[in-house]
């Protein structure tokens, strides 16, 4: 059979659907019959296409892909892309304005007026909860700084996590994606709860999801979608994103004073203790830096935590004064 004798696929779709719907003209019916009778293969395919069991199975399968959920997800990605695009335009504006001093001054006053940014920093030893302009709730762990506008603009709800660890419980608004920018990654949601960790002195950012669906994107990386109990780790040096499983109970457990470490570098654990207990811990035993720590503890005095760590990792420590602990 030469290629040109084969009707294009769309013609066959039209003819077979028309046959199923009894919409064919006599000529079209003849055209379909000719195709069916061309060979056994076509005859089999036709029988399969009009089989009601196959139809029901195909539709059930199509229903299972969740079109609406997927459309929502893609729409939020589109919103995030539009937002980035706007920022690019804005930056090139800034560049042009820098050349023209007068415009630069005008633009500066304009933007500073429009974007009243609020900055919140939580001291060591404290956990703070606050409510955003859209009534979404945020919990901030010790040593965290975030920045957000006094009033969100009409397209997105943009938050900057400058340093630290925060848990977000976001009010659902499909028209205004909620975007957390944190050290090289954008975390985009419509209405969910999730945790973002991005400490300036750590190489890895982490995003973990409690409810809903969360998109994590980094420059030049495909967006990673996370569902409940899933987390993504972004390495700020290699710019790679990797996915992991996380137990829901462990996510943002610091809100209730719990300490949870899952295969974390020793140094990160020390940093976390310094922030939680507002102390300085000096490590004089460099080989400890190679260790990965897994630990789950309820709200305990620092002494208990250090005792557990010292015993299981074979080090000694001494409390020099209120503020300083030395490990050796």
């Amino acid at each position: 059979m030469a290629a040109e004798e084969r009707p294009p696929a769309q013609r066959i779709i039209y003819l077979v659907s028309g046959y199923i719907n009894s919409r064919l003209t006599a000529d079209e019916q003849r055209e379909l019959d000719a195709w069916i009778n061309q060979n056994d293969h076509n005859r089999q395919l036709f029988a399969e296409l009009v089989s009601e069991d196959r139809q029901a199975a195909a539709i059930a399968k199509m229903e299972s892909f969740g079109t609406e959920q997927s459309l929502l997800h893609v729409t939020s990605q589109m919103a995030a892309i539009t937002q980035k695009h706007r920022q690019r335009i804005k930056y090139s504006w800034y560049a042009a304005a820098a050349i023209l001093v007068f415009s630069a001054v005008a633009l500066f006053t304009h933007t500073s007026h429009r974007r009243q940014l609020l900055t919140v920093s939580v001291p060591f030893g404290k956990v703070q909860q606050l409510t955003l302009p859209d009534s979404s709730k945020v919990w901030l762990n010790a040593g965290t700084t975030i920045q957000y506008p006094e009033k969100f603009d009409n397209t997105t709800r943009q938050i900057l996590l400058k340093n630290g660890q925060a848990f977000f419980d976001v009010v659902h608004d499909p028209d205004k994606p909620f975007v957390v920018e944190a050290k090289g990654i954008d975390v985009t949601v419509l209405g969910t709860s999730f945790e973002v960790k991005a400490f300036a002195d750590e190489q890895e950012n982490k995003v973990a999801v409690t409810t809903g669906k969360v998109g994590v994107s980094a420059k030049d990386q495909p967006t990673v979608m996370l569902l409940p109990d899933e987390s993504a780790v972004y390495n700020t040096t290699t710019h790679q994103i990797s996915e992991q499983k996380t137990s829901a109970a462990d996510i943002a457990s610091w809100r209730t004073g719990r300490l949870v470490f899952e295969q974390e570098p020793f140094q990160y654990v020390i940093h976390a203790l310094e922030r939680k207990y507002n102390v300085r811990i000096q490590n004089e035993k460099p080989q400890l830096l190679q260790l990965k720590i897994t630990l789950r503890l309820n709200d305990q005095p620092l002494k208990n935590v250090l005792d557990v760590l010292a015993f299981s990792n074979n080090f000694n420590y001494r409390q020099e004064n209120e503020q300083l602990i030395v490990i050796r």
Binding site: L45, L49, M62
Partner: peptide, 9 residues
């Protein structure tokens, strides 16, 4: 494609 689109209708 034919399978998907006949079912798609």
């Amino acid at each position: 494609m034919i399978r998907a689109e006949v079912g798609g209708e």
